[in-house]
Amino acid sequence: MSSTTKKSSFIKSIFQAPPFRWTKKLLGKIGFSGRGLVIAVPTIWLLVFFLIPFLVIAKISLSEALIARPPYSSLLEWDSDGLLQISLNFGNYYYLIDDALYIIAYLNSFKIATISTIFCLLIGYPIAYYIAKSPENKRNILLMLIILPFWTSFLLRVYSWIGFFKANGIINAALLNLGIISEPLIMLQTDFAVYVGIVYTYLPFMILPLYSNLVKLDDILLEASADLGGRPMISFFKITLPLSVPGIIAGSMLVLIPAVGEFVIPALLGGPDTLMIGRVLWDEFFSNRDWPVASAVSIIMLVVLILPVMWIQNKQNSNLGES
């Protein structure tokens, strides 16, 4: 007891040393506290890399497309009398409601992302569970194996699937040689290939949060359940699964959100009829050169994605409050 008080008083005395006191005073004068400084780093991060880009996109979404550089009108204009004119164009948002294409594309992206997330969960959960239950010295190697693919370029890994799936690719060649099929299967440029690509790419994002949740699970709970006559299946569904819900939610969000906006995987592996919002965005931006509508599409996507995340966050917080 006495040693800890000594230690803490020692640390305290460091912070009361003149350089610290003066800095603190100085920062206090311009309205900073130590706590504020710590929070400032993530705040600035979010401001610079999230809020400001978001506002820029929001601004463009309210302008009009032009043949110019940059290819959109400016919202603020000084007219000849020195008056500041603000012109907002909500037509881009109206346009998105007017044509069913956009809604269908949003829904289809959501469908593909949701199904991929479910598959990631079904495949990722046993893997995460196995790693969490492995002896400690093995865990790091197993985790390493999960992270290892990240050392290769993402694009290259998606490309390699083309080699597997194409008509004279590895899978077809193997099946043909074994005599299982007589005509090559068409796998590339199908929704199937897109699902495989997304599940494969995002699986680590499911496994890692699940693992970090499951590894904290106290084995005593399972022992207690077994002592009370609970068979392994019952113990899993009554104890392990409910306790791992935060991991499931975190993993699912990490997979679902980027998968909805995915462009590269459907572009490389998907067929031309794989309609996802990323593709629509590309068309607006590149083929129509309509940056305002493209911005409106991405603003809507952000809003649609952020609302459920906020709802879940809220729910989790209130759950924490209860327990």
């Binding site: 069913a100 294409l101 594309a105 009829d273 309609l275 629509v280 068309d283 083929s287 129509n288």
Partner: peptide
């Protein structure tokens, strides 16, 4: 061009 892109999307996706 916008009409053209829309027609192209229709051709590719059926939507």
């Amino acid at each position: 061009d916008r009409t053209l892109t829309r027609a192209w999307t229709k051709i590719k996706t059926g939507q």
